[in-house]
Design a protein around this nucleic acid. Structure first.
Length: 589
RNA sequence: GGGGCUGUAGCUCAGUCGGUUUUAGAGUGCCACCCUGUCAAGGUGGAAGUCGCGGGUUCGAGUCCCGUCAGCCCCGCCA
């Protein structure tokens, strides 16, 4: 029996029609002489009814139906009897009275229920991913993912981008993330690497005159996983020829706005506010600030040398910082709670946490006795603190102050309920440093990648003070999550050489690693730049999900294992021999 | 590589100070029977356990200790 309509699409308009439905048995309510089945497919649920008036044969057969049986039914759409409508269902005013039932495939009792309200352990969900994919949650998430991809394609096509595929089997890139390698059978001892991103290839497409390129591209990085990181993930990869930063921003903002509007009906504020890297670090202690709430970091370093409190004075003397945040209305935190917050700050590297409860009389704090009344008042004013507020202050090296206060800020916002679900606060973070000092190896590293254009005003600094050079690189940040990253690229040989000099790449090395790209640049390269929005993270936000696995059909665990397929797995020795590979495994003691 | 949380019935969980508060329980699911308007259907009965795994302490371990495995969160890592 071939279906004539999807279960979730049956409506009052179909009353009186004969329909054939195909789907899964979601729930059954067997009254003996009357059986109700909620039949489910991608579109939703509809109630089908088996009764003796319609077919005794079907009724008898229906007693054998169990959860997740795949069935076909033929019957008539009728209005439900007065008082039996179910407002919870889109199909709740109608039902299908069954005359004919065919069991297309029975099912073993599923290892977990798709109808329970309880949350099943993710281990079980991932092992039986094909069952979990039937759940309302994953069906919705994958629908949103599909619609987001379609919206992106539609928008970018309209904006004049060509979708071009780039190879998965490519050349190992020497820097950046760890590569996934693929041995070559034909070229013994040589390997392809799977792309961490199509970075170099998209730049070559610009040299190739493609002008505007996009690709919904799989990227592969052999690094450890996180709640928002999988070893293979998807970027909406973009590159533009003859472009400046503002144009990249404009297109990207409109792309995001289009996707959010089209898929979830949310209006992103366009244009996105812009913040320099330096401002972000100063005000939020991170390069990806969550701007859904304020609670900016307040700097007290200038007050520190004057105070009697030794911790502050010492930190000031060692070029450290004293900064804090104000948690409005948290002045009623008890000692035990404050001890826990101190513990939290310590877990995030701070030596300790100075708290101050703002009372009508002044500041109540263990360190208050080391501060003069005037100093306490200065602090209060610096925070614009009102009675009932709580001040949380960290004194340490700048990096630790930034990190611990970033964590505290987000923790307090969470506790204070400042984070509304399904609100989105985007911004650009711009002017990242071009290079950063690698203390262990005593050299400069590229902060983004070595093809990133330095700010024009900073070109002289390339020779004198590379650490101060700002790059024409940028991140789009939404709700504290890095959602896109890109830059204007170097297309001039002399600038490229200077950047290589700074990061210690010799001409020979450059030739060996990126020779084909540098060669290409000598044959007429347009100024170009681009950006790569992280598709999975965008979809996560649209779905209101906290975890990337919820928006990927077949995700991997934190140990990069597919629990369903049991990948990775061993291979046949013959396959290894063909690839000229001998294993050298660590021996078990 | 490191820190933290978790692991008891198919699923979600409880299990107190280590003990005749059990023969390790509950809800749900499952199985059987009854049941014509339910929608988390209802009723009666039943089956269901390697307490993640290994070792140790003890007269006695789901409970304490050590190790180990797995899942999750975080640090490192992610140009």
């Amino acid at each position: 029996m071939k279906r004539t309509i999807r279960c979730g699409e049956v409506r009052e308009a179909h009353i009186g029609q004969e329909v054939v439905l195909n789907g899964w048995v979601h729930r059954r309510r067997d009254h003996g002489g009357l059986i109700f089945i909620d039949l489910r497919d991608r579109a939703g649920l509809v109630q089908v009814v088996f009764g003796p008036e319609d077919s005794v044969t079907a009724l008898e057969a229906a007693h054998d139906l169990r959860s997740e049986y795949v069935i076909a039914v033929r019957g008539t759409v009728v209005r439900r009897p007065e008082g039996t409508e179910n407002p919870e269902l889109q199909t709740g005013t109608v039902e299908v009275r069954v005359r004919e039932l065919e069991i297309l495939n029975p099912a073993k009792t599923p290892p977990f229920s798709l109808t329970d309200r309880t949350e099943t352990d993710e281990l079980v969900r991932m092992k039986y991913r094909y069952i979990d994919l039937r759940s309302e949650r994953l069906q919705r998430n994958l629908r949103i993912r599909h619609e987001a991809a379609q919206a992106a394609r539609e928008f970018l096509t309209r904006e004049g981008f060509w979708e071009v595929e780039t190879p998965l089997l490519f050349k190992p890139t020497p820097e950046g993330a760890r590569d996934y390698l693929v041995p070559s059978r034909i070229s013994p001892g040589n390997f392809y690497s799977l792309p961490q991103s199509p970075q170099i290839l998209k730049q070559l497409l610009m040299v190739g005159g493609i002008d505007r390129y996009f690709q919904i591209a799989k990227c592969l990085r052999d690094e450890d996983l996180r709640a928002d990181r999988q070893p293979e993930f998807t970027q909406i990869d973009l590159e533009f020829a003859f472009v400046d930063r503002d144009e990249v921003f404009d297109v990207t903002e409109r792309l995001f706005a289009h996707m959010f509007r089209q898929v979830i009906g949310y209006e992103l504020p366009v244009p996105f506010p812009r913040m320099t890297y330096a401002e972000a670090m100063r005000d939020y202690g991170t390069d990806k600030p969550d701007t859904r709430f304020d609670m900016k970091l307040v700097d007290l370093t200038d007050l520190a040398p004057e105070v009697e409190f030794k911790v502050f004075r010492d930190v000031a003397a060692r070029h450290g910082q004293v900064k804090g945040i104000k948690a409005e209305g948290c002045g009623d935190y008890a000692r035990a709670q404050l001890d826990k917050l101190t513990e939290f700050a310590k877990q995030h590297k701070a030596q300790g946490l100075v708290w101050m409860r703002v009372t009508p009389e002044g500041l109540d704090s263990p360190v208050a006795r080391f501060l003069t009344a005037e100093q306490l008042d200065q602090i209060r004013q610096r925070f614009s603190a009102q009675p009932g507020d709580l001040l949380l202050i960290v004194a340490d090296q700048p990096a630790i102050v930034a990190e611990s206060l970033d964590w505290l800020r987000r923790e307090m916002a969470q506790r204070m309920g400042l984070i509304r679900p399904m609100t989105f606060s985007p911004l650009w973070v711009v002017d990242f440093p071009l290079v950063s000092w690698n203390e262990e190896e005593k050299r400069w590293d590229a902060e983004h990648h070595p093809f990133c254009m330095p700010h024009h005003e900073d070109w002289e600094l390339l020779d004198t003070d590379p650490g101060k050079v700002r790059a024409l690189s940028y991140d789009a940040v939404i709700n504290g999550s890095e959602c896109a990253s890109g830059s204007i690229r170097v297309h001039r040989r002399d600038i490229q050489q200077k950047v290589f000099d700074i990061i210690g790449v010799t001409p020979e090395e450059a030739e060996r690693k990126f020779g084909f790209l540098l060669n290409a640049f000598e044959y007429g390269t347009p100024p170009h730049g681009g950006i790569a929005p992280g598709f999975d993270r965008i979809v996560m936000m649209m779905c209101g999900e906290e975890n990337i696995r919820e928006v990927i059909a077949f995700p991997k665990t934190q140990r990069a294992v597919d629990l369903m397929a049991d990948a990775p797995g061993p291979v046949d020795p013959r396959q290894l021999k063909e690839l000229h590979i001998k294993l050298d495994l660590p021996t078990q003691p």
